[in-house]
Every structure is written in structure tokens, then in C-alpha cells.
């Protein structure tokens, strides 16, 4: 098993006729993802890489039957509409790849997703990949590279940086350990499925024996993961690295964050909280593969 994506999932691509949409459809197909339909309003009726294109998501759902996941590759200002369209059509998982989506649009999508019992990854995500099973988004860039770089195995990866998701996965694979699924949760302040939600997915996946998390300063994602560990809701071994230690403490212009969150969001606060609840936080990024291997040796 893996989380969120494998070869059984039926995937729609919104924005399939665009530059990015087309290139990434090719990657997904070649890596084994079942891309069953595409959608670009006004361009229905044609075929892109053998995938039928529809004018609306509802039409795609009607013609193709159930769609598990929609991956969105439309320009940032159009993301809200595309995402809401997919949610209204009943799609339960979205992968929102574009960068620079306005934050209130993300909040609107989040509200609608919650009402409809749906979830989304991103925005500003490279996507996710289960080695040997399937990929969503643009992780790996080329299927051939993705096959070469990422090996199947028991380690889950969750990261707030897209490039780092790939590097962690590559270095872990090179150390002889494989991965169940690697997820880039998205680089923005507000994302659909932050670290804690990914941890809960990994908790329920019997094939994932431990998780590696790449955190960053800002937001309360890592602290919430610590809360989950403390509450006994996430019980698998966790190896974490928090980036941004050297980031300049800039002049902050809003007091509001500090008033409600206090110490949350800082490098020091995140590291301390995670260590308190027993997670392994490495200080050097380069130590991740060896520490992962050692941690794994204790659980399997």
C-alpha cells in the first residue's frame, strides 16, 4: 500500500491542454498513473496523449464514471474556479500545483472542501509520488528519472519544500532504504493537507513503518505534529529536519501572529516541541539518510 496515490486511482487533469498540463500528463502516464480524462473549458472533444478532453468536470465524471483525484494545472487566478468546479462535481481529492494562488481563494476552497468532505494538496506543490505505483503533479519531472531516483520501501516522506522532497527521497533511496509515498504538502502558508494530516495518513498505512519530515519556520504544522504524537494519534517513528535556522529575524510588521501563537512558528520552538515528544530532530540535513536507516533498523 501507499497513501493517496497508487495505480488504482482514476485521475482527471484540469488544464490538460496547457504547456504544464500536457507535460505533466505525460509524466504521470509514463509512471503508471491512470489518467482517465482531461478538462479544458472550450476545448472538449479532442484527445491529448490519448486522454479524452471535456469542457467541464461534471461532463468528464459523467462520461468516465468515478474520478478519484483531480490534478489542477491552470493559471493561478483561475485555480479557485477550477477547484470549486471539481468539488461540486464530487471529486474528493485535489492536487493544486500552481504557485501564487491568492490566499483568500485558498480559504474559499478549503471551506468548500470541508463542507463536501473532500481534501486537497497544495497549492504550490510539486505533488506526490508512490514509488512504482503512481505520481500526481510533477514530482521527478520525467518518469525515467523518477524510476531511477526513488525506490519502493517502508519510509514515508512529508515535506514543505518541493525540491527537498525529491532530494530526501533520492538520498534515502541511495542509502538502500525505500519509500512508501513522498508528499510535498505545498510551499504556501495555508495548504490543504499540512504535515499533521499527512502523518495521520501514514499512521493508517501498514506499509509505512516510519516517516521523515522536512519542516520549515513559520506556520504551526510541525507543532501540531508534535501534538498528535503526544495524544498518541501518530505513533510511528519520526525523523525531522527543520529548515530556516539561519533565516534572518526580519522586522515583523504584524503583532497579531505573535499574540495568538506565541512561540509557535520559530525554529527553536519547533525543534524543542518535537524533541519533547520523542521525535528525532537532526541538525544536519546530510544526516537524514543514516539516521533514517538506523531508526528503521529498530522497528523492522
Amino acid at each position: 500500500m501507499a497513501i493517496l496515490i497508487d495505480e488504482t486511482k482514476r485521475v482527471l487533469v484540469q488544464g490538460i491542454t496547457g504547456r504544464e498540463g500536457m507535460a505533466r500528463t505525460e509524466l504521470m502516464q509514463e509512471y503508471g498513473t491512470q489518467v482517465v480524462a482531461g478538462c479544458t473549458p472550450g476545448k472538449g472533444g479532442r484527445n491529448v496523449l490519448g486522454v479524452p478532453v471535456y469542457d467541464s468536470v461534471a461532463e468528464a465524471v459523467e462520461a468516465q464514471g468515478g474520478i478519484d483525484i483531480s490534478t489542477i494545472f491552470v493559471p493561478a487566478p483561475l485555480v479557485k474556479d477550477a477547484a470549486l468546479e471539481a468539488l461540486y462535481a464530487g471529486v474528493k481529492l485535489l492536487v493544486i500545483v500552481p504557485d501564487r494562488v491568492p490566499i483568500y481563494d485558498v480559504l474559499t476552497i478549503a471551506g468548500e472542501a470541508e463542507r463536501r468532505g473532500a481534501r486537497f494538496i497544495g497549492p504550490n506543490t510539486l505533488g506526490l509520488l508512490s514509488p512504482g505505483r503512481g505520481v500526481l503533479g510533477m514530482m521527478g519531472g520525467r518518469a525515467e528519472s523518477a524510476r531511477k531516483w526513488f525506490k519502493q520501501g517502508p519510509v514515508g516522506v512529508s515535506s514543505r519544500s518541493g525540491g527537498i522532497t525529491s532530494s530526501i527521497a533520492y538520498y534515502i533511496s541511495r542509502a538502500g532504504v525505500g519509500l512508501s509515498t513522498m508528499v510535498h504538502v505545498g510551499g504556501d502558508a495555508v495548504v490543504g493537507m499540512p504535515h499533521p494530516e499527512i502523518m495521520l495518513e501514514f499512521e493508517n498505512d501498514p506499509d509505512t513503518k516510519m516517516v521523515v519530515m522536512f519542516g520549515e519556520i513559520g506556520t504551526s504544522q510541525e507543532e501540531t505534529v508534535a501534538d498528535l504524537i503526544e495524544q498518541g494519534r501518530f505513533t510511528k517513528p519520526l525523523v525531522a529536519y527543520i529548515g530556516g535556522k539561519a533565516a534572518k529575524e526580519g522586522t515583523r510588521f504584524s503583532h497579531a501572529g505573535a499574540i495568538v501563537e506565541g512561540n509557535r512558528g520559530t525554529h527553536e520552538g519547533k525543534v524543542r516541541r518535537l524533541r519533547e515528544v520523542g521525535a528525532t530532530v537532526v541538525d544536519k540535513f546530510g544526516d537524514i539518510p543514516s539516521v533514517t536507516r538506523d531508526t528503521l533498523a529498530k522497528v523492522v
Binding site: 485558498v106 480559504l107 471551506g111 504551526s220 504544522q221 501540531t224 497579531a256 499574540i259 495568538v260
Partner: peptide, 18 residues
């Protein structure tokens, strides 16, 4: 004091008053 920020865990705006 009055402020509005976006709360990343609630995925919603939060109004703060002191």
C-alpha cells in the same frame, strides 16, 4: 488592540481583540 490574520491551522481568518 484589534487585528486580523490568517490562521494556517484553521484555514480561516481570525480576528483578535485585546
Amino acid at each position: 488592540y484589534a487585528g486580523v490574520i490568517i490562521d494556517d491551522s484553521a484555514r480561516a481568518p481570525v480576528v483578535i481583540f485585546s
